[in-house]
């Protein structure tokens, strides 16, 4: 496990890249750009294109952050991988439902369920 980043904490668990978002507020352009750059570096080095994003600590999310997630999801799908969100609380969950991004981005309750979706594990 490493934690060389300012906005994320990364671990690799059995074919999954688990990324914990450390910011409570993912709202302003600078923070979002920096998170995106850190994710770019993680994915450049990652052997797996299957990423789980942990939202446990996130309390606010802006439309720009949603854009970053859509871009990340598309890039992972281009690599035959995928993105799954875990521990998305309310009212962040409402943001995903209002924007209908719950149809594009998988959101589940825990890592086991995320692994099942991304890797097809039982």
């Amino acid at each position: 496990m490493t934690n060389q980043w300012n906005h994320i904490q990364v671990s690799h668990e059995g074919g999954i890249v688990l990324v914990c978002l450390l910011d409570k507020h993912i709202l302003d352009e600078l923070t979002i750009r920096e998170i995106g750059e850190e994710l770019d570096q993680v994915l450049a080095d990652a052997p797996s294109p299957h990423v789980v994003l942990d939202f446990s600590d996130v309390e606010h999310l802006s439309s720009s952050a949603l854009g970053m997630l859509i871009t990340l999801n598309s890039r992972l799908q281009d690599r035959d991988g995928g993105l799954c969100l875990v521990n998305v609380g309310e009212p962040i969950g409402e943001v995903f439902r209002i924007t209908r991004l719950d149809r594009v981005l998988s959101s589940v309750s825990d890592l086991a369920e995320a692994r099942a979706i991304l890797l097809g594990d039982e």
Partner: peptide, 9 residues
Amino acid sequence: IASGRGLSL
């Protein structure tokens, strides 16, 4: 599409 959700939110 990655942008265009601000006003909607």
